[in-house]
Write a protein that binds this DNA or RNA. Structure first.
Length: 588
RNA sequence: GCGGCGGUCGUCUAGCCUGGACUAGGACGCCGGCCUGCCAAGCCGGAGGUCCCGGGUUCAAAUCCCGGCCGCCGCACCA
């Protein structure tokens, strides 16, 4: 363990201790001993989480108007949905256990390793048979292996009183968007591209969750299913405009092919380079990765502490044609996945179309209908009917399926058309040019999906914000997402100062801020207390206030103070929280 | 699930190896009062722990043994 690692792991412990002590988060069901994979958020934790969600909403929905809309759908879904989505089949792993040492293995991987055959898609029974036949043993200790069984990571329940009516807790919010795609497409007046966003809780029955709040069995996900036309992803210049707004952003990407060569250093691409060089195979995925980059930077992450990791084909989910994880470097845990960016193609819509029997395609009208001139073979139906009687229909069908060029060739060379063993003289055959009008086309949109785990962001924010200054803890949480906006103190517990301070505090609460008031102990102690929970600024009423009605505003990060008139306090706070420098507040 | 280590006031921890004088000690935090003119000051008083849960050994268990739960590290797993 290096010195840096030591510091980082201490830091992790300190953050966990702080989170518990000051009320950001702690393990759930503590009084019953706790249950792995579940965490409660306290007053500060939920306040900050809500602000992170709102910031996400700002980046991914509000600023993306009118392309993205938000919906909310149930957590529990019927089994049909997860048959269609592929989760019932693919969200399960075949597992064998060694009867001697208890280690568990992926049965299919084990068989593939030993026999060099593709075991994917085999039933558990077939896998068990293969293991028995070839006497495959535990690779760790040589012990006998158990029967293969499937472990499904979906939480299961029943819907209503009938046990056979199985329901599942969603492992992602995405299916709610796919199922509702057609309706929202109609609601949004058949516009493409169309992004449908959802923020909500999901559940995954992880085999052995650890690492506290970063690996949970139940958590909040924020994701967008972004539907676009696969044949015209640029949507006639629309995407070009959007890309040009994020063009200068660089993305650090570790490509799958580089990983194959054991490279570990990400390369740098501009958004446009990543698209043009086909690093990212569909442009919308690149656009959303650029937005994700900006969003995570605003949470307090340095550019250099973040990159996109392309998943290898075998690492990808069953629905994805290309996937990037957005990784952030944090203490103790190293590189932590905070979002996934998957190109889901039309996988989900096509599956739901098949399983529901509903047409989920969209129709796009061409600006101008396309007129296609086409040669067709016509035969005299009266003659065919008279000549072939009951076989006439068959003959007509056969002629239709003939290639026009071949018919022309036959007529030229033989003067007749031969089809299905019958001969039709040239006089009954005509080749004419017809014009066909095509006014649009039907297709399934393709989907680019950015998907964030919100609790992980809560942790990342604390990790990045944590500092120690003069022996005390300061959380330099970005101002927009600090759980408490402002603290108000009287310098000392003098009745006149207390009264003014409480008035200011009240006013701020009524103006919609999370504000705290404190007159306990020394002023230094109070500053320290609010620094520790990341309150960006503190207002102190002192004796000068009695003379000229100004108060001090103190910046959490620099500990600098400026004086602002009581009438300007609200405005100063608003500006400061928006990112204006402290010094500039004196001139408002 | 396996192996290693751990679980003591709100938080961090001393005690555990070598069972008893532990009525489980300390620090920070918390509550009340005093004091306090800007960065965790001081004084007085107070509340707070069935020592993770269950069982066993023993005259006697925070301490030893077994099982469970939870956490950390490693392995496996992680659409």
């Amino acid at each position: 363990m290096t010195v840096v690692d030591k510091f980082n792991s201490d830091k992790y412990d300190k953050i966990m201790e702080l989170a518990k002590r000051r009320g950001f988060f702690w393990p759930s069901y503590e009084i019953y001993g706790g249950v792995a994979g579940f965490y409660d958020l306290g007053p500060l934790g939920i306040a900050m989480k809500n602000k992170i969600i709102n910031l996400w909403r700002d980046y991914f929905i509000i600023r993306q108007q009118p392309l993205v809309v938000e919906i909310e759908t149930p957590v529990i879904g019927p089994s049909k949905v997860y048959e269609a989505s592929g989760h019932l089949e693919h969200f399960t792993d075949p597992i064998v256990e060694c009867t001697k040492c208890g280690r568990k293995f992926r049965a299919d991987h084990l068989i593939e390793d030993v026999l060099h055959v593709n075991a994917e898609g085999l039933s558990p029974e077939e896998m068990t048979r293969l293991i028995r036949e070839h006497d495959i043993r535990c690779p760790a200790c040589g012990g006998i292996l158990s029967e293969v069984r499937k472990f499904n990571l979906l939480f299961q329940t029943t819907i209503g009183p009938y046990a056979q009516n199985r329901g599942f807790l969603r492992p992602e919010a995405a299916q709610g968007m796919f199922i509702n795609f057609k309706r929202i497409y109609e609601v949004m007046r058949q516009r493409l591209p169309l992004g449908i966003a959802q923020i909500g809780r999901v559940a995954r029955n992880e085999i052995s969750p650890r690492q506290g709040i970063v690996r949970l069995r139940e958590f909040t996900i924020a994701e967008i299913e972004f539907f676009f036309d696969p044949e015209d992803p640029w949507h006639e210049g629309l995407l070009d405009d959007m890309i040009s707004r994020v063009e200068h952003r660089k993305l650090r990407i570790l490509r799958a092919e580089a990983k194959r060569r054991d490279e570990t250093k990400p390369e740098e691409f501009s958004v446009r380079e990543a698209i043009e060089e086909k690093v990212i195979i569909t442009p919308w995925l690149a656009y959303w990765m650029a937005v994700a980059r900006d969003f995570v930077i605003e949470l307090g992450v340095d550019y250099i502490d973040m990159y996109f990791d392309e998943k290898l084909p075998e690492e990808r989910a069953h629905y994805a044609a290309q996937t990037f994880d957005q990784l952030v470097r944090v203490s103790r845990l190293g590189w932590l996945e905070v979002s996934g960016h998957a190109y889901r193609t039309d996988y989900d819509l096509s599956r739901h179309m098949r399983y529901s029997g509903k047409d989920l395609t969209v129709f796009r009208q061409f600006k101008e209908p396309i007129r296609i001139k086409k040669k067709v073979v016509l035969v005299n139906p009266a003659w065919v009917g008279r000549t072939f009687k009951s076989k006439a229909k068959e003959v007509l069908e056969a002629i239709k399926s003939l290639n026009v060029n071949e018919v022309e060739k036959m007529l030229k060379e033989k003067g007749v058309v031969e089809v299905n063993g019958v001969t039709i003289p040239a006089e009954h055959v005509r080749i004419v040019e017809k014009e066909e009008k095509i006014s649009g086309r039907r297709f399934l949109p393709h989907v680019a999906e950015p998907s964030f785990g919100i609790e992980r962001l809560v942790f990342v924010v604390l990790d990045k914000a944590y500092r120690e200054k003069s022996g005390r803890v300061v959380l330099s949480i970005p101002r927009r997402i600090a759980p408490i906006d402002v603290a108000v103190f009287p310098l000392v517990r003098d009745e006149r100062l207390v009264k003014i301070a409480k008035d200011v505090w009240r006013r701020l609460i009524e103006a919609g801020y999370y504000a705290i008031y404190d007159d306990d102990g020394s002023i230094g102690r109070r500053y320290a207390r609010v620094d520790e929970i990341g309150v960006p600024l503190a207002i102190t009423v002192d004796h000068v206030t009695l003379e000229d009605k100004t108060v001090t505003i103190r910046d959490r990060d620099t500990w600098k103070q400026v004086r602002v008139h009581l009438d300007k306090v609200e405005k100063a706070i608003r500006m400061f929280l928006q990112g204006i420098e402290l010094d500039l507040l004196t001139s408002i």
